[in-house]
Design a protein around this nucleic acid. Structure first.
Length: 123
DNA sequence: TCCTTGACTCAGA
DNA sequence: CTCTGAGCCAAGG
């Protein structure tokens, strides 16, 4: 079993924030997608990474810097993830201000607004 | 040190 | 489409 050192976890968070900063205005990405764009850490079991990295991304968002557009990160169902505070309504408002539309069930069409990270990989 | 909780995702029913 | 359970990490009290 490979456990992450504090330094590795910090590096993971930094990579997450770098990617989120690249998301274009009015586009969204999922936690899992961000995890895919980050190469698994050396020595880590790929299966294990696949299972837990999305949650680590969530953890990174829980304490992100001011300049990170956290509102553009949603879950794989196209919905805003629930959290402790009442930030969901704030997140939805911010996205609507960017032109992202929600359907009657509070969902975003990922085929329309989802960002695949192509701009990130290209640069 | 033990225990709880967490901004997730996927497969199966 | 909705609901459930498994996965078995990491931080904080």
């Amino acid at each position: 079993m490979k456990y992450l050192s504090p330094a590795e976890k910090q590096l993971f968070n930094i990579r997450v924030w770098e990617i989120v900063r690249r998301i274009p205005l009015g586009r969204v990405i999922t936690y899992g997608k961000i995890a895919e764009l980050i190469q698994p850490l050396p020595g880590m079991d790929p299966k294990e990474y696949l299972a837990w990295s999305p949650r680590w991304v969530g953890g990174a968002m829980a304490s992100c810097p001011e300049d990170v557009p956290w509102q553009r990160v949603i879950n794989s169902q196209g919905k805003i993830s629930l959290r402790k505070g009442s930030g969901q309504s704030v997140q939805r408002q911010l996205l609507e201000d960017e032109g992202v539309q929600f359907d009657e069930r509070e969902r975003v069409d990922l085929r329309k607004y989802g960002w695949e990270g192509s701009d990130f990989k290209a640069s």
